Simulated assay, not measured.
Amino acid sequence: MDAAAPVYGGIEAGGTKWVCAVADAGGDVLATEVIPTSTPETTIRAAVRFFEDRRPLAALGIGTFGPVDVRPGSPTYGRLLATPKPGWANVDVVSPLRAALGVPVRLDTDVNVAALGEWRRGAGAGLGTFAYMTVGTGVGVGAVVNDGLLHGLLHPEFGHIRVPHDPVRDPFAGSCPFHGDCLEGLASGEAMRRRWGRPAEHLDDPSAWELEAEYVALAVMNLTYALSPERIVVGGGVAKHPALLPAVRARLLTLAAGYPGAPVPAGPAAMEEYVTGPSLCDRSGVVGAVELARAARPESTVFCDAPGNARRD
């Protein structure tokens, strides 16, 4: 690597770990490091050290767990809100990194940034409307609509939508500390752990995965009808189970009941194209964070932010 060439930094800031990366001007990742998420001070300090060792840094992009204030110009921009992560509520993620590194810092949600990574370099490349759903410790959705990342009042909180919950079939009350049996409370990795008594990666019971596919399929159907994305990528640790996505596709065909017909996928072959896993595997988030940093370049006149305002370079 040319010592004088600037690099672009990205952080996928998760509740369990922070993945830090630097990339060249073309977005190719040059180095990464995984930092366990401990206290805010310790975690942020470790991230600063990673980037200080890899100067000159041109800009930094961050995709963080939330909820988080992503509104530039807001007095609490970059500050986590009512997160259930102990010790992290009201923590300012942006200011200490900006002050320590002295570079522009862009921030978005972890799932929006994963959507950006897949849109720029993965399964959503070339699409104008695209959604990324993560089903892991939590559940979330990031979306590209009309070539821009979707924001609004705050950012999408799709994990907290309501889906049908049959207490006879599934007597589990839900794990969400705010809503109980919302989508996240029923379908997240944490919900599976509490319902079945062990983590999803250690679950082999077909009935457990049949129930999980039901909830994920309901969520995908709602997302399809609400946003009309051209493709939905489903990622996250829970989604890695080989039985899940095939069961989701099959159930979605039944739930859709033929409505409204073409161009909504109407058969198994089309459904495999429509509901798919991430092309970037576990790197969607950190690649998207780097893309967020690259959008802060002076020559980038348009920033991937709101619908219709997507950067093209």
Rank of each mutant, 00 (worst) to 15 (best):
L60F: 10
P67Y: 07
T39Q: 01
C182A: 05
V216T: 13
A226E: 02
C176Y: 04
D69W: 02
A58G: 12
A200M: 04
T64S: 15
S175K: 03
D181K: 03
G87R: 11
I11H: 05
P72C: 02
T64A: 15
H151D: 01
P177K: 10
A143T: 00
E118K: 07
N222C: 12
V163I: 15
A256T: 14
M133A: 12
V145T: 11
A131K: 01
P40L: 04
R194F: 05
V220D: 07
V144R: 11
G128L: 07
G126C: 04
P156W: 02
A13M: 01
G285I: 06
H179C: 04
R120F: 07
G308N: 04
G236R: 05
V19S: 01
D53G: 10
G117M: 00
L30V: 12
D166K: 11
L116E: 00
V145E: 06
P40T: 12
A296P: 02
A239L: 02
T276C: 13
F50C: 03
G78Y: 03
V233R: 04
V290C: 08
L203N: 09
A200R: 04
E184H: 03
D24R: 03
C304T: 11
A295W: 11
L244D: 07
I232V: 15
P307E: 10
T76E: 03
V111M: 06
G197W: 10
G267F: 05
R45W: 04
F303G: 09
A21P: 06
A200V: 05
T42I: 08
D147G: 09
F178E: 05
M1T: 15
V287W: 09
I11P: 00
S300F: 06
A31Q: 15
A46L: 07
T137A: 01
L107F: 00
P171K: 05
A208H: 07
P86T: 05
V93I: 11
R49A: 14
L116M: 04
V105W: 03
V216D: 09
N146A: 15
A289S: 11
I11Y: 02
H202F: 11
G63I: 00
G277V: 03
P246T: 12
P199T: 00
A295L: 13
S175W: 05
D147F: 09
G261Q: 08
A213L: 09
R311Q: 11
R162V: 15
L223Y: 09
G61P: 02
R98P: 00
L245G: 06
F51A: 00
Y77H: 13
G180S: 08
V19R: 12
V168D: 14
S188M: 04
A256N: 13
P56C: 10
G102T: 11
S207W: 10
L80W: 05
G138A: 09
V113T: 15
R106Y: 09
E291W: 14
W88C: 01
G185Q: 12
A262P: 15
D110Q: 08
P156S: 00
G136D: 01
G87L: 01
A306F: 13
S284M: 05
P156F: 03
A243I: 07
M221V: 15
H179K: 02
V135N: 00
P268I: 00
G285R: 07
V168L: 14
S228I: 00
E201Y: 10
D53A: 15
D204N: 12
A250F: 00
D181A: 14
A115W: 09
A239Q: 04
E52T: 14
P72N: 08
A293N: 02
R251V: 07
